[in-house]
Design a protein around this nucleic acid. Structure first.
Lengths: 189, 189
DNA sequence: CCATCGGGCTATTGACGTTAGCTTTACGGC
DNA sequence: GCCGTAAAGCTAACGTCAATAGCCCGATGG
């Protein structure tokens, strides 16, 4: 009998696929194992139980989102950068709706990998805001403002809370437009 | 042996308490039953299993939030109403952080009680926005905008995502201030 | 005082997470 | 090529929990 040849990455990746496949159903170790052609206890060789699997998926998702944001803002600044960041943020969430929720969870301060992934994503946002020359508390307020706007819209959209048929693209564009105006108004330069 | 004298309301209410008591731990029928001094199967006389319990908590939470918002906006209009609504929204979420997540879930169209509770809360927001005389798509965009801002901030705050020590009150106030400015700019009157 | 309704119980089943301990595969050193 | 070892995957077993079936008895109305 040949071996399955699993690694932590393959297990976590498959779990993420299953989660996207049926976002309503609860993710179970049994389902992941079966999908990999393996018995449940074997997963414990690669992942520290269900909590470990969830943690793996969370970090994976945060890294992926952070990378997408970084890609979107390279070579751009100010309003241009904010709009590109906002578009990438929403696009990633729509492509990975089930994983999006994982990216929001506050990082465990004692978990280095988690902290690093979370901070990397946050850095992108702060780098973009740096273009507006905001100092001290103003910078913090602006970061919270932008995060709230992005997360709020995307979270409501992916959870199906926007039920009217009106164009979501336009609503989002207007939201970002307004945010940009506010940022510019707060800007020192 | 005297009876416990349970009703659906007492069961759901106790479940909500337990959820607030330890938001991390998963809510279990066994825990609810034990907390009520009753065996697990007895709960099925009042609640349709775990899904039914969750549904009950969700509707309860939506109603409570909707009522708080309605109270906050009575006798107010425009910026005054928006600010009062925003404060009430955040306050409710901070007082019921674990239940807050339940209020966001999109209503099941086939569940009348759920739909009614969700729409009642939405009505409050629409009533407030009516003061700005927004027509058609503009009204929808504005509703989405305001909801996104409120939910985004509150959701990030209750999940512990804002880790810097800077004053959250001030950040929220500025967020709402900016939102109000945008609404006024879109207003026809 | 009795009949009925229903609230709470016991017993049981099945799914799942988790641990312990075994088997066997793959691989490095000789 | 051969062997020793680390680890991958397995079986067996246990505990927890959701859920269903069926019973008992407490409460209430006539």
């Amino acid at each position: 009998m040949p071996r399955a040849g699993l690694t932590e990455d393959t297990v976590v990746a498959r779990a993420a696929e299953l989660l996207e496949g049926s976002p309503t159903a609860e993710l179970t170790l049994a389902a992941v194992a079966e999908s990999l052609g393996v018995k449940t206890p074997s997963l414990y060789k690669h992942v520290d139980g269900l909590p470990g699997l969830r943690r793996g998926m969370m970090i994976r998702a945060k890294r992926s989102l952070g990378a997408a944001l970084a890609r979107a803002t390279m070579g751009r600044s100010r309003d241009d950068a904010v709009q590109s960041l906002a578009a990438a943020y929403r696009q990633w969430a729509l492509e990975n709706p089930a994983q999006y929720g994982l990216t929001v969870s506050a990082p465990d301060p004692s978990d280095d990998a988690d902290r690093a992934a979370s901070e990397a994503a946050l850095e992108v946002l702060l780098a973009v805001l740096a273009g507006y020359d905001l100092r001290g508390d103003h910078a913090i307020d602006a970061a919270r403002f932008l995060r709230s706007a992005l997360h709020g819209f995307v979270s409501l959209e992916t959870s199906g809370a926007f039920r009217l048929s009106a164009d979501l693209e336009r609503s989002y564009t207007k939201l970002i437009e307004s945010a940009v105006v506010s940022l510019s108004k707060w800007s020192q330069s």
